[in-house]
């Protein structure tokens, strides 16, 4: 793997500031991005919301 891969990933995911967490559920049809620090509770709540959207 080349170091240039990382810059490609950041471009593809529009990462202009860190930390940034990108969550994809299913085949990627449901996704969201969180910028800044993420608490465990917030992450779990966000995951629940994304999963619920698919039902």
């Amino acid at each position: 793997m080349q170091a240039s891969e990382f810059s490609r990933w950041t471009e593809e995911n529009a990462v202009y500031a860190v930390p940034k967490t990108i969550i994809r559920v299913g085949q990627g049809e449901r996704s969201t991005a969180i910028e800044g620090a993420v608490t465990e509770d917030f992450l779990i709540r966000t995951l629940k919301d994304l999963i619920e959207q698919g039902r």
């Binding site: 990933w9 950041t10 995911n13 990462v15 860190v18 930390p19 940034k20 967490t21 990108i22 969550i23 994809r24 559920v25 299913g26 085949q27 990627g28 465990e40 779990i44 995951l47 629940k48 999963i51 698919g54």
Partner: peptide
């Protein structure tokens, strides 16, 4: 949180950029 995750049936991908 672990109980919730164990019961998730959908594929989940988390990408964390730091």
């Amino acid at each position: 949180s672990l109980n919730f995750i164990r019961n998730v049936e959908d594929d989940i991908i988390l990408d964390v950029f730091v």
